[in-house]
Computed example of a mutant assay.
Amino acid sequence: MDKIAVLIPCYNEEKTIAKVIKDTKAALPEAVIYVYNNNSTDRTAELARQQGAIVRDEYMQGKGNVIRRMFREIDAQCYIMVDGDDTYPMEFASEMVDKVLHHNADMVVGDRLSSTYFEENKRPFHNMGNSVVKASINHLFGCEVKDIMTGFRAFSYGFVKTFPVLSKGFEIETEMTIHAVYNHMQIDNVIVEYRDRPEGSVSKLNTYTDGFRVLGTIFRLYRDYKPFGFFSFLAAFLALAAILFFIPVLLEFLETGLVLKFPTLIVCGFVMMAAIQSFFAGLILSNMAMKSRRDFEYRFTRVCEEERRKKFAPQSGISESV
């Protein structure tokens, strides 16, 4: 297995990919650099090969699909994932690698938001979106992750081989963060500088479409990972609605001895039954989620044992051509 693998997902990044590879070689001369070409229509793949990177193709469009392919195919003690748009200075990569290899970090976040992101980024809705996503996840999952949407991260072998990639697009970073937080993995933070894309390089991120996808991912993962909290909130909302609509019916009955709004009474009864069912669904799913956490710990231990075997296994002598 590689000691350090640098993974660069790319879609039409001919303006910047050569510089990213050169900077990576200067910062991490011992690393193996993989460029995953995601149906680029420009010279991205050609330029990456000229710079000595190993180029592979992922034909299913979307960053999540690219990351799924990368994580399946590459074995390394430490992974660095960085975008091919030259917005992250690679001189911070060595510190991130050190935290994985020598300080037991499972994921290292390249934190843009604590440095130059809000000054360099020229898209105000992206600034607001990053802040909203960060606040939402930290509040819902009880964590203090500094940058949720960063594309500059380092991972351990254990994280990569146990991370279930479910997203297809840019919401993958949110999914990574929640997976690490929920499974109590060690998350470290390295403050990195951020620079906006150079002239002629175009962002593939759609502010509104991808923003709503990210929010939908947070909603889905909170429901899946924290079912008791999710369904308890739903139960409380339904119960409150049933009580509010039932009070006028009750007051009318106490005054006249008659129930004149039978449809309202019936609907209140069904809504209260739905609230009770929601509460108990949360209890059941919470127990299932706890079992899933136990299974994950067992699987994570086996993956770590597999890493140790590969790390100390004799080299086969077979290398991949560039």
Rank of each mutant, 00 (worst) to 15 (best):
D224F: 03
A289L: 06
L258T: 06
N138P: 12
F231G: 04
V97D: 03
H102P: 02
M81R: 13
K146N: 08
I4T: 13
G151F: 01
A274S: 12
V82G: 08
T264L: 12
S40V: 00
A45P: 02
F125M: 14
M185C: 05
E297T: 09
Q61D: 06
H179M: 12
C143M: 05
Y79T: 08
R153W: 05
Y298S: 14
S321Y: 12
F280T: 11
S136C: 08
G282W: 09
K25M: 00
E199V: 14
R49T: 01
V35H: 02
H179S: 08
V190T: 06
Y194D: 10
V322R: 15
N130G: 04
L251Q: 11
Y117K: 11
P198S: 00
D42A: 04
T301F: 04
L113R: 13
L234M: 10
R69A: 11
I80F: 04
F312C: 01
M70E: 00
A289F: 02
V271D: 07
R72W: 01
D106G: 09
N12G: 01
F125W: 12
T116K: 15
T174A: 12
S40C: 09
L166G: 06
P227V: 01
L251H: 09
Y194S: 07
P314C: 07
S321Q: 10
F159R: 11
A154D: 07
S156V: 11
S316R: 11
L258V: 00
E30G: 15
I137Q: 14
Y36C: 08
Y59L: 13
D224Q: 12
R299H: 09
F125N: 14
P124L: 13
E305G: 05
E255I: 12
A76Q: 09
N183F: 10
K122V: 10
T16E: 09
G142E: 15
E307G: 03
S136D: 12
E173Q: 13
D210K: 10
V214S: 06
I80N: 00
A275K: 10
V303C: 05
V6C: 03
K99S: 03
F312V: 12
K204A: 10
V100E: 14
Q315N: 07
A274E: 11
M273L: 15
M185L: 15
L251A: 15
A5Q: 03
L285V: 04
N39I: 06
H126C: 05
I21Y: 06
Y182H: 13
A18L: 01
A289D: 13
V32L: 06
M272Q: 07
F270Y: 14
D85P: 01
M81Y: 01
A135S: 15
M272G: 04
A18Q: 07
V32S: 14
Y88K: 03
K15P: 01
V202K: 09
T217D: 01
L28N: 05
V66K: 07
M128E: 09
D98I: 04
Q61P: 03
M290W: 14
F262C: 00
D224A: 13
D86V: 00
N189M: 00
P248S: 06
R72K: 08
P314K: 14
R56K: 15
S40K: 02
G142C: 03
V108E: 11
P198F: 02
L205T: 14
T217G: 01
A53V: 07
M176S: 02
T207S: 10
E171F: 08
M149L: 15
Y208R: 10
G158Y: 07
H139W: 08
L285A: 15
F280Q: 04
K161P: 01
P248V: 10
K291N: 13
G52H: 01
